[in-house]
Amino acid sequence: MKKKKIVGTTIYHVLVLLGAFIMVYPLLWMIFSSFKPSATILPTATQLIPSEWTLSNYFTGWKGFMGYTFATFFKNSFFIATLSTFGTLISSAFVAYALKRLKFGLNRFLFILVLATMMLPPQILMIPQYMWFRHLNWVGTFYPMILPYFFAIQGFFVYLIMNFIGGIPKELDEAAKIDGCSYFAIFFRVILPLITPALITSAIFSFIWRWDDYLSALLYVTKADMRPISLALKLFNDPSAGSDIGATLAMSTLSIVPATIIFLFFQKSLVDGIASTGIKG
């Protein structure tokens, strides 16, 4: 009986491990291929580990195209993703506090609006927003990719933080109030420190989504020096850029490094965030 169980467990692990390998195989293929001499990547496509290791793809790729290196593109992406994430966090936390804890006339109405915006996909707003930003003369600037996020436009994050505030005992607010704290002091001294886990989860998702955002870059970036990594990679891969497969795979690998590092370090926050809110990935 015991022997049978060991055999069963072994088979289980072998099969699950095989599945896991198939799942990450495309990524492994990309990473390992980026260290092969460019000309050998396709002929040795079935061989995962390079027989000859080289960093030359990274050097060629980093030079970029049309006079801009990948340093520019990475810097742009970091700038956009960091600022828009900061805006999302602070504005969503404000709104979540108001909707969850404060009584005022429009509270219920605004909450329903937040839920409605969660259902309204950004792709639907693509054309309307483009025309509006054109009126505002924002096309060709970073504004459309950063400023809206300072106004809690992603209802999903408001909802996530609201749920979290719901778990904080109300007695804490009341005790602070008796001590003479204003609502602003309660928010900054009591609520904000306690919702750190929700803010971390939100920051991770926001950063990764903004980093990957290709549609906004496609619509609003008109100058070469403002390209974020998503748009730059796409152009770099075009045959007209004269790209070679090795350099493209090397830069693609670099572009997923931030998301992968965040994933490895904050796996628990990510998993908890998804489990508690049913986020899309």
Binding site: A20, L27, T248
Partner: peptide, 21 residues
């Protein structure tokens, strides 16, 4: 470890890098 391996594609799947790949 398994959970991470099966979940990783969802985290990076929306990127331009994966589309190119």
């Amino acid at each position: 470890f398994y959970r991470a391996a099966y979940y990783l594609p969802s985290i990076i799947g929306g990127s331009v890098a994966i589309a190119i790949l």
